[in-house]
């Protein structure tokens, strides 16, 4: 494990994730003909939340208090497994893609367990909706990740990206579709923001306040940044430096940032122009993508 690279990646993602959210808020405001908050507004929000006093429900358990930390911890470890700028991620071994899936899922799962531990039945509704979406999401993610690994003959993100950069194929292009949908789903945007349920006020985070709320939101942002990065590099596997000492490294970081902002822009435009689904619509709309992701595995085996 390369410690310097790990620290750089962590710092980058931790800094950028709230800014991306701020950017999304700005874009949404512009679409709605508002001026919108400053781009650093999400950072201000998080810092303010960290300083605030918590209000805990009487019936809550211990897990309610520690789950935000655990959830954030899992999201941060996931940062170490994806490459940013360099071709080799800091923590790299065979099977790291599968670990990535598990870390992100565990982060969501702990969020769900923590929110039900608050004792509020509305959190329970949020948690069960989140997991319903996660079941379908994991199906899409697993299908497309396995496609990439079958295609490239490797279970290491570093080597998958290296092999992808030589020749793009139909199978991997098809596999990008469910992956993109999954990234969209995980970044909690309309029409798939079922469990957050902003318009209904009740939802997964209903009982979280103060620092716990801040941690949960931060964890969500980091998770969606990690996934967006994965999507970017699987779609554009070319612009990666060999190591962080190479002169190309700053350029590849800038390219990464540009693509990240571009992706956020596209997602936000979609988000602002669509209406929210009911949960059963959302579930039914995702089923075809699971089929696509499994189809792409078959395509990868056929070698097209």
């Amino acid at each position: 494990m390369d410690l310097i690279e790990a620290l750089i990646n962590l710092a980058l993602v931790m800094l950028i994730a709230p800014i991306l959210d701020g950017f999304a808020r700005k874009v949404r405001a512009r679409i709605q003909c508002r001026i919108g908050p400053p781009i650093l507004q999400t950072w201000y929000d998080i810092i303010k939340l960290f300083k605030k006093r918590d209000i805990d429900p009487e019936v809550s358990g211990k897990l309610y208090s520690i789950s935000p930390y655990l959830s954030l911890a899992f999201s941060l470890i996931a940062v170490l497994i994806i490459p940013i700028g360099c071709r080799e991620p800091p923590l790299s071994f065979t099977g790291d893609v599968l670990l990535l899936i598990y870390l992100l899922a565990s982060s969501s799962l702990l969020m769900a367990f923590g929110s039900t531990a608050s004792g509020n039945p509305f959190s329970g509704i949020g948690a069960s909706r989140m997991l319903s979406m996660m079941i379908l999401g994991e199906g899409m993610l697993a299908g497309s990740i396995i496609t990439f690994s079958v295609f490239s003959g490797s279970l290491r993100i570093g080597s998958v990206i290296k092999i992808l950069s030589t020749s793009p194929h139909l199978a991997t292009t098809v596999a990008l579709i469910p992956l993109a949908v999954f990234v969209y789903l995980e970044s909690e945007r309309v029409p798939l923001d079922i469990h957050e349920a902003e318009p209904e006020i009740i939802g997964l985070l209903v009982e979280f306040s103060g620092r716990k709320l801040g941690l949960m939101k931060y964890s969500l942002m980091i998770r969606s940044t990690v996934l967006a990065t994965l999507l970017i590099y699987l779609a554009f596997p070319w612009w990666l430096a060999d190591s962080y000492t190479s002169p190309f490294y700053p350029i590849s970081i800038i390219l990464w940032l540009l693509l990240l902002f571009l992706l956020t822009f596209i997602f936000t435009v979609l988000d602002s122009s669509l209406a929210r689904y009911r949960i059963n619509n959302a579930i039914e709309s995702l089923v075809p993508f699971i089929c696509i992701s499994f189809l792409s595995i078959v395509l990868a085996f056929l070698g097209v």
Binding site: F50, R53, D54, I55, V59, N120, F122
Partner: peptide, 12 residues
């Protein structure tokens, strides 16, 4: 942080 307070869960 200041010590958190305990309250009724919020039931709409």
């Amino acid at each position: 942080r200041p010590i958190g307070i305990r309250a009724e869960p919020w039931f709409c």
